[in-house]
Design a protein around this nucleic acid. Sequence first.
DNA 1: GTATGGATCTTCT
DNA 2: GAAGATCCATACA
Length: 187
Amino acid sequence: MNHDFYARDVRAVARELIGAVVRHGECAGMIVETEAYHESEPACHAFVGLTARTRTLFGPPGYAYVYRSYGIHALLNAVSEPAGVGAAVLIRALEPLDGIELMRSRRGVDQLGELCSGPGKLTQALGIELEHNGCDLLAGPVTIEPPSSWVPAPVVASERIGITRAVELKWRFTLAGSRYVSRPRPR
DNA sequence: GTATGGATCTTCT
DNA sequence: GAAGATCCATACA
């Protein structure tokens, strides 16, 4: 995996990140759900153009875009497409792999399926905060690694969740049959 | 099981 | 001053 992996169509990157592993410190999880966002559609923060907030989105690919959602949660994205194009992949859910006890204590719940089954949940479980905005996803401290054993993952495309604009685009990608996605069924 | 509302903060108007 | 790529507690069936 290198920065060129991210310098492509954000939808291809979102689909191919299913099965990759997000790691921060001793905690890690396999990506089972992503969504693609691109400056050409109004659900994307970069739709409004280059501002102080979106400068990471327009920056070079392979970096983390972390922002605060609803005043409470930090959401993790992987900046994609070449520099100058505002696009990113939202990491929406993980299957917990390493550091599960630490995740449990951070989240305050025991159930495996409740640790990382949502974009705000997984950042809390892994200890990812706003300070990681702009972090190099190949150098860390937050990293994304290729799958340890490559098995072709059956990926399902459906409509994105929790947005009010460009709802019709099927830019959400989930690992078929996973018990760890944020919602059991696409709507 | 579904439905509703509150928490809390960054950004932009 | 309002909106938002969310989560959780509570209420009710």
